[in-house]
Amino acid sequence: MNDSNGEIKKMMIILSKATLENVYAAFVLANGARMEGIEAEMFFTFFGLEAIHKKKLKRLHVATVGNPAMHMPTMVGGLPGMEAFATHMMKKEMGKIDMPDVEEFLDILTASGVKLWACKLAMDMFHYKKEDMISDIDGVITVGDFYKKASGSGTHMLFI
């Protein structure tokens, strides 16, 4: 901390969830870091892998059950079609504020120099192959590899 003066030099963002709001939060934070001249690397683990899975990234949803901010009874949130409806509404609002969709956001992140890493253990667990993931990922690595990439002063790590 001393030689970086407390200044943030690098953000290491771990995404473990595949709900749309979490994916967007992680993407906005990574992109926002790059916009400020801060390095950013992302580690996709467990359900977070869906955000870089070629087919699944197009079908990410908002969680309607177990999400108190949805302000709807859990039973209602569980009804068929509710997730699709909430997702549709959220996407509509995002379009209004010029928020890119997941696919375009990934392109922006890559073009901005954000490194995208897939977690090896989670890949094995879900039986995903590297070919299942978008071609822009920088590699499939272990948690140890990710920690090594985080070395240096001024690095902050964030778990989503």
Partner: peptide, 21 residues
């Protein structure tokens, strides 16, 4: 926004970052 600049046709995001790192 970065996205608008990238879509401008003047410069793409990658080049924008390489010009002003």
């Amino acid at each position: 926004s970065i996205r608008k600049v990238g879509k401008s046709g003047v410069v793409d995001i990658k080049e924008f970052y390489s010009l002003f790192p």
